[in-house]
Design a protein around this nucleic acid. Structure first.
Lengths: 118, 118
DNA sequence: CCAATTTGCTTGCATCTTGCAAGTAAAAAC
DNA sequence: GTTTTTACTTGCAAGATGCAAGCAAATTGG
Protein backbone atom coordinates (compact mmCIF):
# COMPACT_ATOMS: atom_id res chain seq x y z
CA UNK A 1 0.00 0.00 0.00
CA UNK A 2 1.46 3.33 -0.92
CA UNK A 3 0.68 5.54 2.00
CA UNK A 4 -0.68 8.97 1.18
CA UNK A 5 2.08 10.96 -0.45
CA UNK A 6 4.60 11.79 2.24
CA UNK A 7 6.53 14.23 0.14
CA UNK A 8 4.16 16.62 -1.57
CA UNK A 9 4.47 15.66 -5.19
CA UNK A 10 5.77 18.17 -7.64
CA UNK A 11 3.43 17.19 -10.46
CA UNK A 12 1.38 14.24 -11.61
CA UNK A 13 4.09 13.21 -14.09
CA UNK A 14 4.92 9.58 -13.41
CA UNK A 15 8.58 10.28 -13.93
CA UNK A 16 8.57 13.16 -11.47
CA UNK A 17 6.67 11.08 -8.93
CA UNK A 18 9.08 8.19 -9.33
CA UNK A 19 11.95 10.57 -8.77
CA UNK A 20 10.30 11.94 -5.65
CA UNK A 21 10.74 8.44 -4.27
CA UNK A 22 13.87 7.17 -5.99
CA UNK A 23 15.69 10.26 -7.13
CA UNK A 24 18.77 10.52 -4.99
CA UNK A 25 22.25 9.10 -4.94
CA UNK A 26 21.58 6.15 -2.64
CA UNK A 27 18.11 4.67 -2.94
CA UNK A 28 18.69 2.78 -6.17
CA UNK A 29 21.96 1.40 -4.84
CA UNK A 30 20.13 -0.05 -1.86
CA UNK A 31 17.68 -1.51 -4.37
CA UNK A 32 20.55 -2.98 -6.32
CA UNK A 33 21.83 -4.69 -3.20
CA UNK A 34 18.39 -6.08 -2.49
CA UNK A 35 18.29 -7.48 -6.01
CA UNK A 36 21.61 -9.12 -5.39
CA UNK A 37 20.21 -10.79 -2.30
CA UNK A 38 21.61 -8.62 0.42
CA UNK A 39 19.09 -8.84 3.21
CA UNK A 40 20.79 -7.58 6.34
CA UNK A 41 21.66 -4.15 7.52
CA UNK A 42 25.34 -4.89 7.78
CA UNK A 43 25.29 -6.34 4.28
CA UNK A 44 24.40 -3.01 2.75
CA UNK A 45 27.16 -1.25 4.59
CA UNK A 46 29.71 -3.58 3.03
CA UNK A 47 28.97 -2.55 -0.52
CA UNK A 48 31.89 -0.74 -2.13
CA UNK A 49 30.16 2.64 -2.17
CA UNK A 50 30.18 2.73 1.61
CA UNK A 51 26.81 4.12 2.53
CA UNK A 52 26.67 5.89 5.88
CA UNK A 53 24.53 4.07 8.44
CA UNK A 54 22.23 7.00 9.10
CA UNK A 55 21.50 7.30 5.37
CA UNK A 56 20.96 3.57 5.09
CA UNK A 57 18.46 3.49 7.93
CA UNK A 58 16.64 6.41 6.38
CA UNK A 59 16.55 4.85 2.93
CA UNK A 60 15.38 1.47 4.16
CA UNK A 61 12.58 3.15 6.08
CA UNK A 62 11.56 5.10 3.00
CA UNK A 63 11.62 2.02 0.77
CA UNK A 64 9.45 0.20 3.25
CA UNK A 65 7.11 3.13 3.60
CA UNK A 66 6.66 3.18 -0.15
CA UNK A 67 6.01 -0.52 -0.31
CA UNK A 68 9.12 -1.25 -2.34
CA UNK A 69 10.84 -3.35 0.30
CA UNK A 70 9.74 -5.03 3.49
CA UNK A 71 11.25 -5.96 6.81
CA UNK A 72 10.78 -9.45 8.18
CA UNK A 73 12.18 -11.52 10.99
CA UNK A 74 13.18 -15.11 10.21
CA UNK A 75 11.92 -17.97 12.43
CA UNK A 76 13.70 -18.06 15.75
CA UNK A 77 15.80 -14.99 15.01
CA UNK A 78 15.50 -11.46 16.28
CA UNK A 79 17.53 -9.37 13.85
CA UNK A 80 15.41 -8.12 10.99
CA UNK A 81 15.99 -8.90 7.33
CA UNK A 82 14.95 -7.03 4.26
CA UNK A 83 13.52 -8.13 0.95
CA UNK A 84 11.91 -6.63 -2.12
CA UNK A 85 8.18 -6.61 -2.59
CA UNK A 86 6.62 -7.08 -6.00
CA UNK A 87 6.54 -3.34 -6.38
CA UNK A 88 10.27 -3.33 -5.78
CA UNK A 89 10.92 -6.17 -8.16
CA UNK A 90 9.11 -4.19 -10.81
CA UNK A 91 11.98 -1.75 -10.73
CA UNK A 92 14.31 -4.28 -12.26
CA UNK A 93 13.94 -2.96 -15.82
CA UNK A 94 14.79 0.51 -14.57
CA UNK A 95 17.91 -0.69 -12.79
CA UNK A 96 18.99 -2.71 -15.79
CA UNK A 97 18.43 0.20 -18.16
CA UNK A 98 20.44 2.56 -16.00
CA UNK A 99 23.22 0.06 -15.46
CA UNK A 100 23.35 -0.74 -19.16
CA UNK A 101 23.67 2.92 -19.98
CA UNK A 102 26.48 3.34 -17.50
CA UNK A 103 28.25 0.30 -18.82
CA UNK A 104 28.03 1.58 -22.35
CA UNK A 105 28.86 5.22 -21.75
CA UNK A 106 30.97 5.55 -18.65
CA UNK A 107 34.51 4.27 -19.06
CA UNK A 108 35.86 2.07 -16.33
CA UNK A 109 32.58 0.57 -15.20
CA UNK A 110 32.17 -3.14 -14.67
CA UNK A 111 29.00 -5.23 -14.78
CA UNK A 112 27.89 -6.89 -11.59
CA UNK A 113 24.12 -7.16 -11.67
CA UNK A 114 23.75 -10.55 -13.30
CA UNK A 115 22.70 -10.39 -16.97
CA UNK A 116 19.83 -12.86 -16.67
CA UNK A 117 20.07 -14.89 -13.50
CA UNK A 118 20.81 -13.74 -9.98
CA UNK B 1 33.50 12.77 -24.89
CA UNK B 2 33.13 12.13 -21.23
CA UNK B 3 35.56 14.41 -19.54
CA UNK B 4 37.64 12.88 -16.76
CA UNK B 5 35.34 12.10 -13.83
CA UNK B 6 34.41 15.39 -12.21
CA UNK B 7 32.83 13.81 -9.19
CA UNK B 8 35.09 11.17 -7.73
CA UNK B 9 33.21 7.97 -8.41
CA UNK B 10 32.07 5.87 -5.51
CA UNK B 11 32.77 2.55 -7.17
CA UNK B 12 33.11 1.06 -10.62
CA UNK B 13 29.54 -0.22 -10.54
CA UNK B 14 27.81 1.06 -13.66
CA UNK B 15 24.67 1.77 -11.67
CA UNK B 16 26.55 3.77 -9.07
CA UNK B 17 28.39 5.69 -11.78
CA UNK B 18 25.17 6.43 -13.60
CA UNK B 19 23.70 7.70 -10.38
CA UNK B 20 26.72 9.91 -9.78
CA UNK B 21 25.60 11.71 -12.94
CA UNK B 22 21.84 11.30 -12.95
CA UNK B 23 20.92 10.53 -9.39
CA UNK B 24 19.09 13.55 -8.11
CA UNK B 25 15.59 14.93 -8.19
CA UNK B 26 16.01 17.17 -11.25
CA UNK B 27 18.41 15.86 -13.85
CA UNK B 28 16.10 13.25 -15.31
CA UNK B 29 13.27 15.76 -15.47
CA UNK B 30 15.41 18.06 -17.56
CA UNK B 31 16.14 15.02 -19.73
CA UNK B 32 12.44 14.34 -20.01
CA UNK B 33 11.86 17.88 -21.23
CA UNK B 34 14.63 17.51 -23.78
CA UNK B 35 12.98 14.33 -25.04
CA UNK B 36 9.73 16.23 -25.39
CA UNK B 37 11.48 18.80 -27.54
CA UNK B 38 12.01 21.59 -25.05
CA UNK B 39 15.13 23.34 -26.25
CA UNK B 40 15.18 26.70 -24.54
CA UNK B 41 16.05 27.74 -21.04
CA UNK B 42 12.69 29.33 -20.45
CA UNK B 43 10.96 26.21 -21.72
CA UNK B 44 12.35 24.12 -18.88
CA UNK B 45 11.23 26.60 -16.29
CA UNK B 46 7.64 26.28 -17.53
CA UNK B 47 7.36 22.59 -16.73
CA UNK B 48 4.91 21.91 -13.95
CA UNK B 49 7.54 20.93 -11.43
CA UNK B 50 8.92 24.46 -11.43
CA UNK B 51 12.66 24.01 -11.38
CA UNK B 52 14.60 26.88 -9.86
CA UNK B 53 16.74 28.71 -12.37
CA UNK B 54 20.00 28.23 -10.52
CA UNK B 55 19.40 24.48 -10.40
CA UNK B 56 18.45 24.44 -14.06
CA UNK B 57 21.62 26.24 -15.12
CA UNK B 58 23.65 23.85 -13.01
CA UNK B 59 21.96 20.76 -14.39
CA UNK B 60 22.23 21.87 -18.00
CA UNK B 61 25.93 22.53 -17.50
CA UNK B 62 26.39 19.10 -15.97
CA UNK B 63 24.48 17.37 -18.75
CA UNK B 64 26.63 19.14 -21.31
CA UNK B 65 29.79 18.33 -19.43
CA UNK B 66 28.84 14.67 -19.43
CA UNK B 67 28.06 14.70 -23.13
CA UNK B 68 24.38 13.96 -22.63
CA UNK B 69 23.10 17.23 -24.03
CA UNK B 70 24.63 20.01 -26.09
CA UNK B 71 24.19 23.71 -26.48
CA UNK B 72 23.89 25.22 -29.94
CA UNK B 73 22.97 28.55 -31.42
CA UNK B 74 20.62 28.54 -34.40
CA UNK B 75 21.49 30.51 -37.57
CA UNK B 76 21.07 34.21 -37.11
CA UNK B 77 20.07 33.91 -33.48
CA UNK B 78 22.00 34.65 -30.35
CA UNK B 79 20.12 32.83 -27.62
CA UNK B 80 21.34 29.28 -27.14
CA UNK B 81 19.26 26.16 -27.55
CA UNK B 82 19.71 22.71 -26.09
CA UNK B 83 19.38 19.25 -27.55
CA UNK B 84 20.20 15.67 -26.63
CA UNK B 85 23.27 13.95 -27.95
CA UNK B 86 23.22 10.28 -28.84
CA UNK B 87 24.43 9.50 -25.36
CA UNK B 88 21.44 11.35 -24.04
CA UNK B 89 19.03 9.65 -26.40
CA UNK B 90 20.35 6.35 -25.12
CA UNK B 91 18.72 7.16 -21.81
CA UNK B 92 15.27 6.80 -23.29
CA UNK B 93 14.79 3.21 -22.07
CA UNK B 94 15.68 4.32 -18.58
CA UNK B 95 13.19 7.18 -18.63
CA UNK B 96 10.50 4.95 -20.03
CA UNK B 97 11.12 2.27 -17.45
CA UNK B 98 10.97 4.71 -14.57
CA UNK B 99 7.89 6.44 -15.93
CA UNK B 100 6.19 3.10 -16.53
CA UNK B 101 6.88 2.08 -12.97
CA UNK B 102 5.47 5.32 -11.65
CA UNK B 103 2.42 5.01 -13.81
CA UNK B 104 1.80 1.50 -12.57
CA UNK B 105 2.54 1.97 -8.91
CA UNK B 106 1.91 5.57 -7.95
CA UNK B 107 -1.74 6.52 -7.87
CA UNK B 108 -2.69 9.76 -9.52
CA UNK B 109 0.05 9.85 -12.12
CA UNK B 110 -0.68 10.58 -15.76
CA UNK B 111 1.29 9.62 -18.83
CA UNK B 112 2.81 12.38 -20.89
CA UNK B 113 5.96 11.04 -22.49
CA UNK B 114 4.52 9.73 -25.74
CA UNK B 115 4.26 5.93 -25.86
CA UNK B 116 5.97 5.53 -29.24
CA UNK B 117 6.10 8.78 -31.12
CA UNK B 118 7.22 12.13 -29.86
C1' DC C 1 26.98 -19.96 30.55
C1' DC C 2 29.75 -16.07 30.20
C1' DA C 3 32.81 -12.93 27.72
C1' DA C 4 33.83 -10.99 23.26
C1' DT C 5 32.17 -9.61 19.02
C1' DT C 6 28.72 -8.27 15.74
C1' DT C 7 24.47 -6.19 14.49
C1' DG C 8 21.21 -2.62 13.92
C1' DC C 9 20.60 1.21 14.65
C1' DT C 10 20.71 6.67 16.79
C1' DT C 11 22.94 11.10 17.72
C1' DG C 12 25.72 15.22 16.85
C1' DC C 13 27.95 18.09 14.00
C1' DA C 14 30.41 20.10 9.85
C1' DT C 15 29.67 20.57 5.09
C1' DC C 16 27.53 20.31 0.74
C1' DT C 17 23.26 20.78 -1.88
C1' DT C 18 18.53 22.79 -2.59
C1' DG C 19 15.12 26.10 -2.87
C1' DC C 20 13.49 30.67 -3.14
C1' DA C 21 13.61 35.49 -4.27
C1' DA C 22 15.97 39.17 -6.54
C1' DG C 23 18.68 41.22 -9.78
C1' DT C 24 20.75 42.06 -14.46
C1' DA C 25 22.55 42.63 -19.10
C1' DA C 26 21.67 41.16 -23.60
C1' DA C 27 18.33 39.84 -27.02
C1' DA C 28 13.94 39.79 -29.19
C1' DA C 29 9.35 41.55 -29.88
C1' DC C 30 6.28 45.26 -30.82
C1' DG D 1 13.23 52.53 -29.52
C1' DT D 2 10.81 51.23 -25.72
C1' DT D 3 8.83 47.22 -23.49
C1' DT D 4 9.17 42.33 -22.65
C1' DT D 5 11.39 38.27 -22.56
C1' DT D 6 15.37 35.44 -22.09
C1' DA D 7 19.21 33.45 -19.95
C1' DC D 8 21.35 33.51 -16.56
C1' DT D 9 23.94 34.93 -11.60
C1' DT D 10 24.00 35.99 -6.72
C1' DG D 11 22.83 35.67 -1.80
C1' DC D 12 20.99 33.44 1.76
C1' DA D 13 18.02 30.24 4.52
C1' DA D 14 16.82 25.50 4.98
C1' DG D 15 17.43 20.85 4.28
C1' DA D 16 20.22 16.71 3.01
C1' DT D 17 24.61 14.23 3.33
C1' DG D 18 28.88 12.42 5.22
C1' DC D 19 31.60 11.11 9.02
C1' DA D 20 32.66 9.55 13.50
C1' DA D 21 30.91 8.00 17.92
C1' DG D 22 28.05 5.72 20.83
C1' DC D 23 25.01 1.99 22.47
C1' DA D 24 21.88 -1.77 23.80
C1' DA D 25 20.34 -6.08 22.12
C1' DA D 26 21.64 -10.20 19.66
C1' DT D 27 24.76 -13.57 18.28
C1' DT D 28 29.10 -16.11 18.42
C1' DG D 29 32.91 -18.71 20.55
C1' DG D 30 34.98 -21.19 24.13
Amino acid sequence: MPSPPTTPRRSCCPLACSLDILGDRWTLLVLRDLFRGVDRYSGFTRSPEGIATNILAQRLDALIEHGIAERFVPEGKKHPRYRLTQRGRDLEPTLRALAAWGLQHIPGTEARLAPKDG
